[in-house]
């Protein structure tokens, strides 16, 4: 019975389909199509609105660092740099912490404690980013200054806030994949006399590698696009400085800051061009994640 129904829904060429089924199939295919259409429309609109910038500056827009709304000269490099560096800093801090926490939660913590901790972590994931930004301003910035940073706000502070923000994602997802590691595999290792560390390193982590990579890229995507919390603590100065304690700027932050008052068309167009670049960057990151997961999957 069930297979007969399935056969009709997935139409085999030449087979007959009931009118209702056909209608349903087309309607839901339309729904799925809307997603593609919306993405394409977004990219097209961004490209159209930023055409002036690409015409004036060409691709040099991406690697020049002058941002002068008075002279209508625009270059996106400081923002690209700020987004990349703050996001990578966040990963650098959050990945070891998150994976470590997940190992503790699955392998070491007593069940009750793990449950309480998981609840707290999920709560952390639900904190709106503007609240984290406020926390950054009132706690992290004075703390950074007390530790010797000249301003308190800056690239490192932004990285720390972002790390805090993506930590729950990495921990939750990594824990979920660690829980899928088959018990017999681990028990076989223990039976061979392996220590807990050897089991984690030799079985659990390699088994969940693709899931952890997925978690990392998901977090990276979120860090790249984060706006409020970053703009509140990064210092909003489009410069490229070697020191992480100096203020910087990010792509999402400059759009949020300057869009409302962009007086000239060239300025507006340059901000949209940054939006398009940010979108391209996230597409690239997601593409890279897919490719990596595919490679990892096929190696197994």
């Amino acid at each position: 019975m069930a297979t007969a129904v399935l056969d009709r829904v997935r139409t085999v060429p030449g087979s007959r389909e009931r009118a209702g089924d056909r209608l349903f199939r087309r309607v839901i295919a339309g729904f799925a199509g809307i997603i593609l259409l919306a993405t394409a429309a977004l990219a097209w609109q961004l490209a159209r609105e930023s055409a002036e910038t690409w015409k004036t500056f060409g691709l040099t827009f991406l690697w020049t660092s002058d941002w002068d709304p008075v002279a209508d000269v625009f270059g996106a490099l400081p923002f690209l740099y700020g987004t990349a560096v703050s996001s990578l800093l966040a990963l650098l801090i959050a990945v070891p912490l998150g994976v470590g926490a997940a190992v503790f939660l699955t392998e070491l913590a007593p069940k009750r404690l793990a449950e309480v901790l998981m609840f707290a972590i999920e709560l952390l994931a639900a904190v709106p980013s503007v609240i984290l930004g406020l926390m950054g301003i009132f706690l992290l910035v004075p703390a950074m200054r007390a530790l010797g940073a000249p301003y308190g706000v800056g690239m490192l502070t932004a990285g720390l806030i972002l790390a805090f923000m993506i930590l729950p994602y990495i921990t939750t997802i990594t824990r979920e994949v660690l829980l899928t590691v088959p018990r017999p595999l681990k028990e076989a290792m223990y039976a061979l006399g392996a220590t807990r560390w050897e089991v984690v390193r030799g079985v659990s982590l390699p088994y969940s590698r693709s899931g952890i990579v997925g978690a990392v890229f998901l977090s990276l995507g979120r860090a790249l696009g984060e706006t409020m919390a970053v703009t509140m603590v990064i210092g909003n100065n489009p410069q490229i400085k070697a020191s992480l304690l100096e203020p910087g700027y990010s792509m999402a932050a400059v759009i949020a800051n300057e869009l409302a008052e962009a007086a000239s068309d060239a300025h507006l167009s340059a901000l949209v061009a940054i939006g398009l670049t940010l979108m391209a960057l996230t597409v690239l990151v997601n593409g890279a994640a897919r490719l990596m997961l595919y490679r990892l999957g096929s190696r197994k």
Binding site: N236, A262, A263
Partner: peptide
């Protein structure tokens, strides 16, 4: 060096929203 507009290229400083 800097000029007049609603947003300018600041020679130095921190930006607050």
């Amino acid at each position: 060096k800097v000029g007049v507009a609603t947003a300018v290229k600041w020679p130095i400083g921190l930006g607050g929203k």
